[in-house]
């Protein structure tokens, strides 16, 4: 029981790491980026190649996956995304679906369509057997990283001048420009970090949710639920939404093997009916 709960929490944390970047670009910057999963997939494949072909240690591969994906994000943001901030949502949707299609086909072409996997280092295998629950070491790492990322992001967003400039830029681009805030670089950096975190999530996720070229499509709905259910006013909402989604999904699939995969959709519909503006929205 508690073990399931913990696995759910770990899964939720993974979703949070995967989706928190989207919570910022979509939630705060209002860019409907359905291609977020493509960045996560990139991180996953980078890690797989590093581990299997280059024999880079796992803990070293994670930051590389983050950086590589962040660089890719930065590149795409500067060249393509930046031109679409002022476009309507439909253009953003079409564009990002285009990116998804391209990434899926390209990865299939280069890496094949089979599931990817790698060997975890020995110290991350096995479980801690505690009194009431048994905790997978790897999942414990994921949980720790999820919490750490939440705290770091929250501090950056709320306490640093970068965070306050970002919030100003998000609130009103024109006013922010008037105040001498250079909106462009701030958005670029934010987008890069968001993509990098997705890549990190993708790397961490290989062991838990697997990795194949259809990853961006399979997880699109999870990302959307995290952001929509979590609301768009900060990171705490998406964090709670991720946990809820993770626990519901794991518990659903464990206790009701036949119908458990419906748990997330049920959750989505229930939350939507009860809190159409998201979990933490202020009552109107």
């Amino acid at each position: 029981m508690l073990t399931i709960l913990f696995d759910g929490v770990a899964y939720g944390m993974l979703l949070f790491v995967l989706a928190c970047g989207l919570a910022v670009t979509l939630g705060l910057m209002n860019f409907v980026n359905l291609a977020h999963g493509a960045f996560a997939m990139t991180g996953g494949y980078v890690t797989t190649v590093l581990l299997n072909d280059w024999h880079v240690p796992f803990l070293m591969a994670l930051p590389i996956a983050f950086l590589a994906t962040a660089m890719l994000g930065l590149l795409l943001e500067r060249t393509l995304y930046v031109r679409l901030y002022t476009c309507g949502h439909l253009d953003q949707v079409l564009f990002s679906i285009g990116i998804v299609f391209m990434s899926v086909a390209a990865v299939t072409y280069f890496m094949g369509s089979q599931q990817q996997s790698f060997q975890l280092p020995a110290f991350l295998q096995g479980r801690f057997e505690l009194e009431l629950l048994s905790v997978g070491r790897y999942r414990a790492l994921v949980v720790a990283m999820g919490v750490a990322i939440l705290i770091i992001l929250q501090v950056i967003l709320m306490k640093t001048s970068f965070g306050s400039r970002l919030r100003a830029a998000v609130d009103d681009r024109r006013v922010a420009r008037g105040l001498g805030i250079s909106v462009g670089p701030i958005f670029s950096l934010t987008f890069a970090i968001g993509s990098g975190l997705a890549g990190l999530g993708g790397a961490l996720g290989v062991e838990i949710v697997g990795l194949d070229p259809n990853f961006p499509l399979k997880f699109m709905i999870y990302f959307l639920i995290v952001v929509t259910v979590g609301g768009t006013s900060g990171l705490i909402g998406p964090f709670l939404a991720s946990l809820l989604l993770g626990i519901a999904d794991v518990a659903g699939k464990y206790y009701l093997p036949d119908t458990g995969s419906f748990a997330i959709y049920t959750l989505m519909i229930v939350v939507l009916l009860m809190r159409p503006q998201g979990l933490l929205s202020k009552a109107q």
Partner: peptide
């Protein structure tokens, strides 16, 4: 045959851009 969605994606990206 297998990768035609790549070109479709490219078409979308170009179209929007």
């Amino acid at each position: 045959p297998q990768y035609w969605h790549f070109w479709l994606g490219l078409l979308l990206v170009v179209l929007v851009q």
